[in-house]
Design a protein around this nucleic acid. Structure first.
Lengths: 118, 118
DNA sequence: TCGAGTGGGAACCTTTTGGTAACCACCCCC
DNA sequence: GGGGGTGGTTACCAAAAGGTTCCCACTCGA
């Protein structure tokens, strides 16, 4: 235990590893549209233009930013196809597949509960 | 199927119910510190002052905003104890317990992957 | 009067975020 | 020259978010 003067069952602070993990999750998924991009790719929509049309309301700029960040965080992988016009495919990594499964469960959870009263 | 001229297996847009669920998730969890607040409550830290000390870096103002929002979204419940000084406890609802379990899995997922190269 | 504890809010400010509009690259065709 | 397609970036801006600082309420004790 890292808190040598506290009761053994209660830490003084939330563990640093927890903090890092949750802040990282915030960085990856906390941004608007990120969950929808991951969900869309897991539903088989893999090309940028298709994603832009499939997700109403998203802008080209934000879509590209999310894709880049999701690739950086190894949730998605990016593959350029040969030939023209240019063609790119995004796909879930192993890590991304697991995250998408968790997001799917969150979606089901949310579907069971109405919005809060406004 | 709602797209009567598209191939049956590919919808034109991500379903509205999906969009609503994911946007709701963004609202609840997308804000900085929300995941850490839920995690801390699930680890048994239930009082506002304790939460503030347990989560380094969080401000009183933001903690209170997150708590209010998490109560509004029925992730947490709030109970005022009788007596003085004032004492309040927050607890996970059934819905919140399920969400916390999912966040715990996300945390484990993240723990297995290093940060992206900067 | 001061200190302490509990819980919580508002004004102000800086920083961050997301959208708009225009632009870029590579091609094709008229 | 114009149109179209693919994919992607940048400047600018308004809005939102989060932190700081100070304040409020209720009590108790010195």
């Amino acid at each position: 235990m890292h808190a040598h003067t506290m009761p053994a069952k209660k830490a003084r602070f939330i563990p640093l590893s927890d903090r890092k993990a949750y802040h990282r999750f915030e960085d990856v998924i906390g941004c608007k549209w990120s969950t929808l991009v991951v969900a869309a790719v897991s539903q088989g929509v893999t090309r940028p233009g298709e994603l832009e049309r499939y997700i109403p309301g998203i802008s080209t700029k934000v879509l590209n930013e999310r894709l880049r960040k999701l690739v950086d965080f190894q949730v998605l992988s990016r593959t350029e196809q040969s030939g023209l016009p240019a063609r790119v495919d995004y796909a879930l990594t192993d890590n991304g597949t697991k995250l998408a499964a968790l997001l799917e469960q969150v979606r089901l959870l949310n579907a069971q509960h109405p919005d809060p009263a406004s």
